[in-house]
Design a protein around this nucleic acid. Structure first.
Lengths: 358, 358
DNA sequence: CTGAAAGCGCTTACAG
DNA sequence: CTGAAAGCGCTTACAG
């Protein structure tokens, strides 16, 4: 069923049929009716491929997520989908699994499919030639969650640094001074001590770090602002995005001597592991240990009440990113935008002062 | 950068350049090298739209999920994405929000974009003309989670009925006889009593019911098999997919007289609401109330240990659906397949016998 | 307002 | 093995 049959059946030229069905150009209302009826009768369905080949626009957004299965990306995708649907756009989704090679392949596929714009969570902020190429070709790219270094593309992210700093400030305000942190902190810094040295320089460009490092920066900044010295033994990395690894890290921290009076877990999965460890050790919360579990999503609602801190961005990351990329696609926007979504911190439950005042 | 420039630069015809770059047809290795070098030098990237227009294949799967943000669909999408990537396919994702109108629009969009096949969770199993049309046109359609009535299309779903029945059997085995059930049970049956009357007939075609009704059927069947009469007052519907509604339903059930000795919650969100209610009432588990929380995903891992039943399908729903649709696309498969994935039940924690033997 | 013609970037018979 | 020509299903100038 092509436009040719419709045109023939309606007794008009294909150009005219196209104008009616495609909604461009003029046509008398008489002809409009005839064409529409013919299309209806024949069960005509436009082939967007053909149109796209001509117009150079597919009305499609390509997304490279880290892992759609994770609550964060699922939520982001939801927002992107909503905005896209409103604009008649489709969304092609791919996973990078945080593998640079897979990310490159995904971007390649999406570009070959002629998407109009790209929303991507760069998995290696340091080496993203494919993204630089796209941006250099003036192709609409919007980054989420973190940004590639030196990439002149919009980015949308949560205020990880600010939210984490706020969490620590809350613990300081309750009188805690020895606050442990459990965070992923996998790549790219091997050595924590050297990261601490670089920290002051990194703050200005924090969003080119993976989120867990941004959150560590917030932890450091809170210490700095409060004049509390950072004890490196309190900073524990799981080294991977896994609850089991977080549990090990937490056990090691809490079983060591000089146990902290409070603990900050830098995301949902870390929190699960840490909670498991705390339960195993039989520590009471907040009596023996104050706990602030952080996440940028409210998936902590699945957990025991009374111990979570949820940083809610004032605006949906997915929606913001989709609006950003659509603006670029429509050529509405020129200045580069780094959108760091302000966050409000929802604290549930109470923070007790340390058992032994510090 | 089109194939024309590459051909010119390599000094061959576009047909030959196409054969080399597209990987079809013959070419001498000398020419292959020249063309590839030219393509590389010019930064040529194939336009899949043009190819698809000719071949009639886009190497794209269209997905209509209920809500990508929910853990179930997020997981399904992950599986689909993995299989698709392996085959060089892209995935276009849409949400129906369980609205028939949105589902129709989504299917329309996907067909216009010329996807090669469709994976869809039909939101109205009774009225799916658009799906019947697609199937009648011999278009590859695979259903997930539930199936549209009378639709001659493959379907992949979890064994909801069997898993729920098993949960109830476990409670019966521990000595319980009065087992409450909290389930969504929103549409399409208004009257529980009349559903019970129809139940025997519905069992043979259970997968055309929304999952919560299938789970209720399992509950009923367990009672029937054990010779325990069903007390309708123990069957509570939240009437919507919301933890708050489930909490209300649970409170009403547990505060009434003749409280059940055990409770079965038919999915994760229902479980959250029910647990809230149980906590509010200060009931001890399993001392005063035995609880079996069911879900087809392990998101119960976020909850307190000791009370969950997770039915794990032996195979990933998303992967199975994607493999199914790819088989159809490739014309590999003729007989209709209703894949009901067998499930193994992971019970965590213990079920106590009823306080007062029944 | 309508139509004949060209063309988007490829692939596909068909010759040679 | 290679090329000239036609064509996928539309849209876009350009005439009229």
């Amino acid at each position: 069923m092509t436009i040719i049959e419709v045109a023939r059946s309606a007794g008009v030229s294909t150009a005219t049929a196209g104008r009616v069905l495609g909604g461009y150009g003029y046509a008398s209302s008489d002809i409009k009716d005839r064409v529409r009826q013919a299309a209806e009768a024949l069960g005509y369905r436009p082939n967007r491929l053909a149109r796209s080949l001509i117009t150079g626009k597919t009305q499609t957004i390509g997304v490279v997520a880290g892992d759609i299965e994770s609550p964060f990306y699922a939520s982001v995708l939801r927002g992107i989908g909503d905005v896209a649907r409103g604009e008649g756009f489709g969304v092609i989704v791919t996973n990078s699994d945080e593998e640079p090679a897979l990310e490159r392949e995904a971007v390649q596929l999406l570009l070959e499919k002629q998407v109009d714009g790209l929303i991507v969570a760069p998995c290696d902020p340091a080496a993203s030639k494919h993204l630089h190429d796209a941006v250099a070709a003036n192709f609409p790219v919007v980054q989420i969650d973190r940004a590639a270094r030196g990439l002149a593309a919009d980015s949308v992210s949560v205020d990880n640094l600010g939210a984490a700093r706020h969490c620590i400030e809350v613990l300081f305000a309750a009188g805690h001074r020895r606050v442990g942190i459990i965070a992923e902190l996998e790549r790219p810094f091997d050595d924590l001590a050297s990261f601490l040295d670089q920290a002051p320089r990194l703050i200005s460009d924090a969003n080119t770090l993976m989120p867990s490092w941004q959150r560590l920066l917030g932890y450091l900044q809170a210490h700095h602002d409060a004049g509390v010295e950072v004890d490196l033994r309190l900073v524990r990395r799981s080294g991977g995005y896994s609850a089991a690894a977080a549990k090990e890290a937490t056990l090691a921290l809490l079983q060591g001597e000089d146990r902290p009076s409070a603990l900050f877990t830098a995301d949902g999965l870390m929190s699960l592991g840490a909670l498991d460890a705390v339960t195993d050790l039989g520590l009471s919360i907040p009596g023996e240990l104050s706990l602030v579990c952080f996440d940028d999503l409210d998936w902590m609602k699945f957990m025991r009440p009374g111990i979570s801190a949820v940083a809610q961005p004032v605006y949906d990351v997915g929606r913001a990113a989709a609006e950003c990329v659509l603006a670029r696609i429509n050529g509405t926007r020129t200045p580069l935008r780094r959108v760091v979504l302000a966050t409000t911190l929802n604290l549930r439950g109470s923070i007790a002062p340390p058992a032994t005042p510090e």
